[in-house]
Structures are given as C-alpha cells and as structure tokens.
Design a protein around this nucleic acid. Structure first.
Length: 864
RNA sequence: GCGAGAGUGGCGGAAUUGGUAGACGCACUGGACUUAGGAUCCAGCUCUGGCGACAGAGUGGGAGUUCAAGUCUCCCCUCUCGCACCA
C-alpha cells in the first residue's frame, strides 16, 4: 500500500478493472431478489453539473449497498435526448441536432464514468434512436385505437414572426422570448392524451404510495384538483330551448345566483351577443382577452372585468332573470367555462357585482347573524342557515347542498358531478427534434393512422433547421408528402408535429429492462422480473409533470395488459438542489468565481476593482454565475472526495450548500483513514478479522470491538431506513477517531485481529460511498475479489451489550448528576443511589422530596 | 389566498418511542512536532457571570399538557417550495 493517498491513479485503476470484469452487468436471476434502482436520466445538455453528480451519487450508493446486501441490482443510465436545446444549438452552430446531441452524450458518458458510477452501460439508451421511438409510435397507434389519443382544436401561445408555438415558459410578460414581439393565443389542431380518463384513479392511488414524499403526493393531488359539486343548466331566455351549463361546488347557493359569467372563449359568447347592440363591445373584449398573457399574469394586480352580452338566462330555482356577462375571471379550461355568479357568497362574484351594480341576494345566513345584502362589504363564504331559498329555508346549508342536488336531479335541471383541474395532456409540438406522430392526413379519408408495419416513421436526417426554431418538416416534401394507406391517394400529408419529450420519459424505465428488444416496447419477461422500479431518485422539479405522466402511461400499458402493475415507482426520493452564494458587482452584475478577488478579506470585482456584494445562497445556475464545474473537483480532489462531499454536507432531500472547506474536510478524512490503514497494514494484513463473541476481549480491545459493531449497526440503519448518508459517514468518522485514540498494549492478545476487524469494517461501510478508495485498501488487506462483491457487514448483538449504563439524575427535570450503574440494577437501587448522590443532595437539602420517577436504564427524576 | 415543508452554536448539520440538546464536520483558539507549514497529532470551542469549582439562560415568539418538551397540543412570527380568479 502506498504511503500517500493518490486519488488519480487508484480511480483510474479501479474504473478500468470494473469495466474489464463487467462487474455492473446484470441479467435476470430468478433465484435472487431483484432491486431496480433508477435515477432520472439526464438531458444531454453538454456537461454534467453538480445537480447530476449529487443525484447520481445518491443513487450509486444505494445501488452498491443493495448489491452488497445480496440483491440483483438493475442500475441503468441513458439519455433523454429529444428536445429544444439541441435545435437551438444546431441553429446557432449551423449543424444538426443529432450531431450536437451525440457529441454531448459522448462527453457526458465519459464524465459519468470518471465519477465511478456503477451503471450497467450495456443497457444505455437514447430516446432519439429510432429503435426507441419506434415503440412509442406503436403505442401511440394503440392509444388512437382505444380513443386515448385524439385530436382537437385548442389554444396555444403563438408567435407570428417566429411562426411557432411557444411553451408557457418561453412567454415572458406576454412577449416572445426570442423576438420580443407580442404573443397571441391561437387555435390549433393538436394531439392529446386522455389523461383525464384516469384522473380519479391517479388521485385514489396517491394514498397508496407510502414510499413517496408527502410533498410530492400533495402536489399531485392538488394538480389533479378534484372538486365535488353539481352541474346545473340555466335556460337561455328567448334561446329556443338552449341553456347554459355551469359547474359549481356551492349548489346550496343557487337561489343567490343573480348573473352569469362566461369565459371569453366560451362558444356561446358570440352567438348570444350576435345582432345586439352589445356585439361590438363584446367582440372587442374577447379580442383583447385573447391577447392577454394567460400564464404570467399577476393575480393580485389583475382586475376583474367583463361586458354584458345583451342576453339573459333564467335561474331555474329562484325564477330570476339573470344577465349574461363574459368576464375575464371565468376560465374556459375549468368546469364548463361558465360560472353562476353568487355575489353574496363568493368574493370574485361580489367584486364583479359591486363594480357593475348587479343584484346581491343573501341565501346563507350565518349562525345567529342577520346578513343583509345592503350591508355587505365582502362575500360571506362560511356555513349557515338557508334563507331566501324557497322550501329549503331554515336548513343548514351543508344539508341543503345534498337536498338541492337531489332536487335538481329529480327535476332534470342538473346533476351531481365532479370536476378536475387536470386537463388532457397536449403532446403536439411544432418542432423538428422529436418523435414524429405516426398519422396521415388524407383529403378524402381524413386522419388515418400509419399502418403498424411501416413503423418507425423516421425523423428525416437531411432537414435544415430554420431560423427561429420553426419546424422544417411541413416543407420537407420527401417527408410530408405521402400516399394514403387507406385509399392510396397521393395527395396525403404526414402529420408533421412531433411528440412532447415527456412521452419518451414516460416509459424509458421499462425499456431499460430489455433495451435491445425488437419485438415490442419491451420483453414481457424482463419487465415482469424487474419492474416496478423499487427506488426512483430525482429532482423535485419533476414532482408533477414527469411523475404524473409516467403514472398515466403505466396505467395505459396496464389496461392493454402489457404490464401487471399500475404504479411504476414504488419509492421515490426527491433530492434537494445544489446551491451556492452569489457574488455581484454594483457595476458588472453577477460575477464568475475567477472575477472575484479577495482584498483584505473582502471580495472585489477584478474588472473594475469595486467591492463586490456577497448575495443569497441560490441554486447553481449559469445566469447567477454561481456554478461549480464538477470537472474541477474531479481534477483537484478526485471522484471519491467529490462523492463524499455530496453525501456528507446535507441529507439528500435537503438543499446542499457548496462549501470549499467542506470538500477539503472530506479529502482530509479520506487521508486520515488512508494514513491509519497504511500505518497498521503490516500488522494486520496477514491476520483474520476478529469476529467472535466479545467474551475473550478486555479493556480497550473490547471497547473498540463494541464501537465497531455499533458503527455497523448505525451505518446500516442510516442507509437502509432513510438514506441519511451524512450521519452514516459521521458514524464511520467516529470509528476512525476511536482507532486513533485506541491505546491497547502492543502485545495484547487478539490486538491485530480486532484492529483488522475495525479497519475492514470501516472500509466495507464506506465502500458504496467512496468505492475506488476502499477497493485499494481492501486489496492491500489481502482480500481477493472486488470489495463490491463482498457481503455487507452485520453486527453481533452480544458485542453491543453494555456492562454499565450511565444514569442521569434530574431534580425537577434539570440534570444535576450522573452515575454508572449495572445494567440489571433495579428501580430501588437506582433510587437510593440518586437520593444519596452528593451533588443531588445540594439541591434537595432543604426541600422535601415529593416524588421520585425512575426510568429503567435511563434516568431518575426527583421532584421536590 | 390555498396547500406542503422548514426555523437548533460563528457555519453545515446531529438528537429511536417525550428522557444528558449541540454527535460528526467546517471555521476559530491553544499546544505538540517541525527549517517551515496552509501538513499532521492532541486539546478547547452555545451564550452570560466567575481564575475556578460552579451557577443561570438556551432549540423563531407566546401559552399549555407532563415528573420531564427541540420532540406532543393551541396561537403568533419568519423563510422556502408548489398551486393560484378552480366557480
């Protein structure tokens, strides 16, 4: 064993050794229990960043730990390879997205290998490969068959100059992020997945995911957003039997509905105002609303406004004539797009009614109170007793909810129903770099699926990307022009939209089970063995979309009998962000690390020399210029220190704050272990570790032996139960400290064997965390075979047994003294010792003892 | 506004079922070894008072339950995240 720890040579050595022996390759082994560990695969953006390093280190530790516990561990890695950055980079570099993507993949793969992650690289996949998206297209056709994929016209953010659809994130204050021109809402035909069919099932199973963080569960529940209420129809006056259907959760207040509000996009808005004097104003309002940025609008500053359509409807319960408005606070996407407005009991309706001088009718009176419409300054939204509600007067409103719903159903005026916030998943992207949607538009036959045998529909490689990100596919005749599979007509066109990249990431975990399978999406036997994923790890930013889509997709596969389970991920860990303080110069804004220089302990801007300001600790991001490149860490300290730091600085679910000193500390610890091992290696390399009962050991030896077993127990519990690697590491640090403090006579019997056991245990416990480092020492100890094939150590109960226990003595709950007592000391003995303790006597001298509480093996509390 | 999580030394963070608050690490201080050390080893390190033994206070604030509260209950404050005119 070298005297000095040299991370570079040993990391190189072991990475090559693992690869040569193909140690991470796994196959189905029916006789072994499987464990599928998955980290969210990266988008191949070009470089691995600290967030990746943290995510994958956490996963790697668990994978290596589970392997040592005897599981057959599947731990794959791949690339979420379709997406916009590739297109943008290709436009900027005048190259092709595929070139850019594959270069990035090569680069990032090499980086990941340098960190020593234990992936089965034989299973690597990239979602932009035709062998992958072919099966996605196949499932799309199946979903069309089942009616789960469909086409409808819907509103999108559209930029005219750029001729493209923008994602919500690309609309900044109503303007296009690229050209700065106004974005408008445009109606386009788009493909959707009917995720709303599964809303109830997705919601119900939220409570059957005990291995998921509470936070993610509630986020999913809120996103699905179930409301129980009623649908009520309001006949349009003079509308020849037509009516307006509304959704409400407060059907008890229906007698108080005094006007109606329709979303500006509601189809009735145009027809109701048509030919009336209000028509022009209504059209102008609708037009103005369509230009409003619907995502970035600040609610607080958003004023409720609307215009009267000139039409009226009838309140079916109160018989009142209600004016019909179109208003900006009515949302087409929710419920039916129409709101029965009850100003007395809904704040929005109240604001609107006050503004436009509309009637207010109180129908729920609060307990013992006397609400009158005239005196109201705000809506009363609480519970109470029904008034002004015909035969329902006097009923508690909670009861009236049920009674009115029944009444409406009996009279055929409405029905009880539920509404969800969740909307169908729009998967069309007017983009090039994605999986083509396998459909054909024929002028005579309509929209026709591509025959299965023609899959995959390849994304043409010879496309030239266009300025502004506009998709070249519609203009690429070789791709777009085709013959109709039904009538054979040659005037058919391919669908030129591609699929949302979230579709690819909704089933990649199944593909990993049999990545080369060409008879379907996956080999059923492989999926039956490996799936579901036992532990999934990734950033909380995917708490809703990716995870919800994957749960939906899995249900679709389940309904088609392709898989046997409904939930793809049994346990989920969402790791926190990697953060660092920002530093900025009053003149030059955020500063890069190399633009900061210390002068008299104060950071200065090296561009202008002014004092720089150290700002908040924030997520590492290029725009904040507080990014640390993992490559620098790998060069300066090596992979093991980098891994150790990521795990030691914070528990995984919490944010991790970058600290130079923290990395140093980790490096120092490894060196400390190394030096100890190197110093005692000659003594211990040829002896077998002491693993017998502790009886024949004494004094220091027994103490160290016990400490070793305690450490094994603590580390195992910390990793197994809760992934608290930080405390696992600190437990090993304590053991190492104990080794340094160890002071048994040089000739004590069994000395070397006990030390060997301690050192070897520490190495084994650390091996999932710092695998190269521990391999090297493991080898030096004379062990044959890789440490990662060694079994995880287990503790002996008899070694943990204590001879004496420290008993705490409290007086009135305050600790006043401590003493050692035999393990089996009974209450009476403890009581006597406590009461005769000299320090305790000081506190009870002039008082009378009221009560003495004795807690076995722990403490005595004396109440005076 | 609704929902979730968090608040512990100078800092990152520890504290099974309520039972020694501050493990471990960083920073800092002192000592040892050294030509030297920013290496290493040993020791100290919540605050206040005291040379000290020790005493008092202390887990965002305030009440409560209890022999005993960082931990349980209620109210309040602050921060972070998510959703947000959801009818």
């Amino acid at each position: 064993m070298e005297e000095k720890y040299n991370p570079y040579t040993i990391e190189n050595k072991w990475q090559r050794s693992w690869e040569k022996d193909r140690l991470f390759k796994v196959d189905i082994q029916k006789d072994k229990e499987k464990y599928y560990l998955l980290e969210m695969f990266p988008y191949p953006s070009g470089n691995i960043h600290m967030g990746h390093v943290r995510n994958y280190t956490i996963g790697d530790v668990v994978a290596r730990y589970k392997r040592m516990r005897g599981f057959n561990v599947l731990h794959p890695m791949g690339w979420d390879a379709f997406g916009m950055p590739a297109e943008n980079a290709a436009i900027a570099n005048k190259s092709h997205p595929a070139t850019w993507t594959y270069q990035n993949i090569d680069n990032m793969r090499a980086q990941l290998k340098k960190i020593g992650f234990s992936y089965d690289w034989d299973r690597e996949l990239a979602t932009c490969q035709p062998e992958y998206y072919r099966w996605e297209q196949w499932l799309f056709l199946k979903m069309v068959e089942k009616g789960l994929a469909y086409r409808k016209e819907s509103y999108v953010n559209w930029c005219d100059p750029c001729q493209t659809v923008l994602a919500n994130e690309q609309v900044e204050a109503g303007m296009c992020w690229r050209c700065g021109k106004e974005v408008r809402q445009k109606k386009l035909w788009q493909w959707f997945f009917r995720i709303t069919d599964y809303a109830e099932d997705l919601l119900m199973h939220c409570d059957k995911l005990p291995g998921w963080p509470e936070k993610v569960i509630t986020m999913q529940k809120n996103w699905i957003g179930k409301s129980v209420g009623a649908e009520i129809r309001f006949p349009i006056i003079g509308g020849e039997g037509g009516d307006i259907s509304v959704f409400t959760t407060r059907q008890d207040t229906v007698f108080g509905a005094t006007f109606m509000c329709l979303a500006p996009e509601h189809p009735l808005v145009g027809t109701l105002s048509e030919g009336k004097e209000q028509a022009a104003a209504v059209n102008a309002f609708v037009e103005r609303m369509s230009r409003q940025d619907r995502t970035a609008k600040a609610v607080e500053t958003f004023e409720k406004e609307g215009v009267f359509t000139g039409a009226y409807c009838l309140n079916p319960m109160s018989g009142m004539e209600m004016p019909i408005y179109t208003a900006n606070f009515a949302l087409m996407e929710y419920g039916t797009g129409a709101v029965m407005s009850v100003p007395a009991h809904d704040q929005r309706d109240f604001d609107f009614a006050t503004k436009y001088g509309l009637d207010i009718v109180v129908v729920v009176n609060h307990e013992g109170g006397d609400l009158i419409a005239e005196g109201l300054t705000e809506a009363y939204t609480g519970d109470g007793i029904m008034i002004n509600s015909g035969s329902f007067d006097g009923m508690p409103n909670r009861e009236a909810m049920e009674a009115i719903a029944r009444h409406l159903e009996d009279k055929g005026l409405g029905k009880k129903t539920v509404s969800y916030r969740l909307r169908d998943w729009g998967i069309s992207r007017q983009r090039y770099w994605g999986a083509p949607i396998p459909m054909i538009h024929c002028p005579s036959c309509g929209v026709i699926p591509v025959p299965e045998a023609e899959l995959p529909i390849l994304l043409p490689e010879d496309a030239n990307l266009l300025e502004g990100g506009r998709s070249p596919l519609p203009e690429l005749a070789a791709f777009a022009q085709t013959t109709c599979p039904k009538c054979g007509g040659d005037r058919a066109r391919r669908e030129t939209d591609t699929m949302d990249t979230f579709v690819e990431s909704s089933w990649y975990f199944e593909r990993y089970c049999s990545p080369d399978y060409d008879g379907g999406m996956f080999d059923k036997e492989a999926v039956d063995y490996w799936m579901p994923v036992d532990q999934y790890i990734g950033g909380v930013e995917h708490a809703i979309l990716h995870l919800l889509y994957s749960r939906f997709y899995t249900r679709v596969l389940n309904d088609m009998d392709l898989v046997k389970y409904k939930e793809p991920f049994t346990c989920l860990l969402t790791q926190g962000m990697v953060c660092k303080e920002t530093t900025s110069c009053p003149e030059h804004g955020f500063l890069l690390p190399n633009e900061i220089a210390e002068q008299d302990g104060v950071p200065h801007c090296t561009i202008c020399g002014k004092a720089a300001v150290v700002g908040r600790v924030e997520k590492m991001s290029k725009s904040k210029k507080n990014v640390i490149d993992p490559n620098i860490l790998l060069e300066r300290y090596g992979a093991d220190t980098t891994r150790l730091f990521c795990l030691f600085a914070a528990p995984p679910e919490r944010d991790l704050e970058w600290s130079e000193q923290g990395v140093d500390g980790g490096y120092r610890f490894l060196n400390r272990v190394w030096r100890f091992a190197a110093a005692c290696m000659d003594d211990i390399k040829d002896v077998s570790p002491y693993t017998d009962a502790p009886d024949s050991l004494e004094g220091e030896l027994k103490k160290l032996y016990k400490k070793t077993h305690e450490t094994i127990q603590r580390v195992t519990r910390d990793i197994e139960d809760r992934f608290h690697f930080n405390t696992a590491i600190s437990a090993v640090m304590e053991l190492v400290n104990a080794l340094y403090a160890f002071d048994a006579p040089a000739d004590a019997p069994e000395r070397h064997r006990v030390v060997r056991f301690a050192v070897e245990s520490a190495i084994l416990l650390l091996s999932p965390i710092v695998p190269h480092f521990t391999e090297e020492i493991w080898e030096a100890l004379g062990n044959s075979g890789s440490i990662l094939l060694a079994p995880w150590p287990t503790h002996r109960e008899d070694a943990l047994a204590k001879d004496e226990l420290l008993i705490v003595v409290q007086v009135n709950g305050k600790v006043r003294s401590r003493f050692n007592a035999a393990v089996d000391a009974d209450d009476e003995l403890l009581r006597k010792r406590a009461l005769s303790d000299e320090r305790v006597l000081k506190f009870i001298a002039d008082k009378s003892v009221k009560k003495v509480i004795v807690v076995k093996k722990k403490l005595v509390n004396i109440v005076v």
